[in-house]
Amino acid sequence: MNTNQIEGMIGMVTVLGILVLLALPSLIGVVRDRRVDRQLREAQEERAGEEGQKSSSRSTVPSTATWYAEGRRSKKLVSS
């Protein structure tokens, strides 16, 4: 290997190291959020089982899509 190839490899390793350092916190956050979601879902199912109620797959709280659509409808009515 000559000097130019070594410098190129050092630069590439440096860039990849910086990329890993920048991406690592977000990847750790995603993994942590998934773990917390799983724990919450398991606790909710356990609580529903203890109360003798059937666990429903449908939520009683409107979804984000419903909330967004209602907001868009109200804006259209106001601007008309």
Rank of each mutant, 00 (worst) to 15 (best):
S59N: 05
V15R: 11
G49V: 00
S80A: 03
E45S: 02
V30H: 14
E45L: 10
S74D: 08
R47H: 11
V13S: 07
L16H: 06
G11L: 04
E42C: 01
T60H: 02
S26N: 07
N4M: 12
S26T: 10
V61K: 10
T3Q: 11
K76W: 06
R47A: 15
I10M: 04
V36E: 07
Q44A: 14
A48F: 09
R32E: 08
S56M: 03
L24K: 09
L77Y: 07
P25S: 09
T66K: 02
V78L: 10
S63V: 02
T14I: 01
A43T: 11
S55T: 14
Y68P: 00
E51R: 06
S26M: 06
P25K: 10
G11S: 08
E7T: 04
I6R: 09
S55P: 13
K75F: 09
S59T: 13
R47F: 14
R73F: 12
A43G: 03
W67H: 14
E7M: 08
K54Q: 15
L21G: 08
T60Y: 04
G52D: 06
A69E: 13
V61F: 06
M12T: 04
T14E: 05
S55K: 14
G11Y: 02
E50N: 07
S59I: 04
E7K: 11
D37G: 10
S74T: 05
V36A: 09
R41I: 10
S57W: 13
R34H: 00
E51K: 06
D37Y: 07
E45P: 00
V78N: 00
V78P: 00
P62A: 01
L16A: 08
A23K: 08
M1I: 05
I28H: 00
E46F: 01
R32M: 09
R32V: 08
V36L: 04
S59Y: 03
V20E: 03
Q53P: 00
V61S: 07
G52A: 06
E50T: 03
A69W: 09
R34S: 01
K75Y: 05
S26D: 06
L24Y: 11
E51V: 03
A69S: 11
T66I: 12
R35H: 07
S79C: 05
S63M: 02
L40I: 11
G17D: 02
E70K: 15
